[in-house]
Design a protein around this nucleic acid. Sequence first.
DNA 1: CAGAATCCGTAAGGATACTG
DNA 2: CAGTATCCTTACGGATTCTG
Lengths: 120, 120
Amino acid sequence: MKWNPYAAECPTRQLLDRISNKWVVLILGLLVDGPKRFSVLKREIDGISQKMLSQTLRNLEHDGLLTRRAFPTVPVTVEYELTPLGQSLNVAVDPLRKWATGNMTKVFRARERVECRTSE
Amino acid sequence: MKWNPYAAECPTRQLLDRISNKWVVLILGLLVDGPKRFSVLKREIDGISQKMLSQTLRNLEHDGLLTRRAFPTVPVTVEYELTPLGQSLNVAVDPLRKWATGNMTKVFRARERVECRTSE
DNA sequence: CAGAATCCGTAAGGATACTG
DNA sequence: CAGTATCCTTACGGATTCTG
């Protein structure tokens, strides 16, 4: 079988759409070194709504990238942990996170150049 | 200066949002080995509208990731080519494309497992 | 605490038509 | 050919409320 995201109907196109997403990238980055609780993730990802967080987590669980474990404490505690598949995806998105932080300055300079040109 | 995409107001958050996008990933992948014309890109990325293509290309140019060159032919010819910065971004997103095609089967299996569970 | 459910505004994005 | 402009319809995603 030959997968090809350049074909509109190929499942890899939708998969690519699912995983190329800032929330996915940020969540995976936090789960690299061990499981974390819902509220911890929410606190560490500044600005994410609980709707987006739970929705993204559900999708990731559905696709086998992480596991959800609920502990019958009072109140309930829930932990999310990367599966081996999720770990491998994190390896793939890690360069993206690093690129963003590592090249922000260069992007800024490029934007300034354009603004100068348009103001001429 | 310390960039941190986990902070909502950090510019790297928006940058990450911009580059974590299926169209960006697909376009960059096509421009790795040399410049390409608008119509060629449109044809090779099945299902992309010309609106999304031109919009994404404009953003990428704005951020210094590619250059646009128009040739005064009749009708006009336009070529897009990666800048060194764009090349470096492509290196960062390349693992993502490969992950999607390389793990589609595993994701499918994970989804089936969930569907079995919910139908019980 | 960890969500599900609802409501709602905005923006993403397709389709179509028009231009240099 | 390579767009821009417009319209229009989804769905993304935030805010709020409610529950085990």
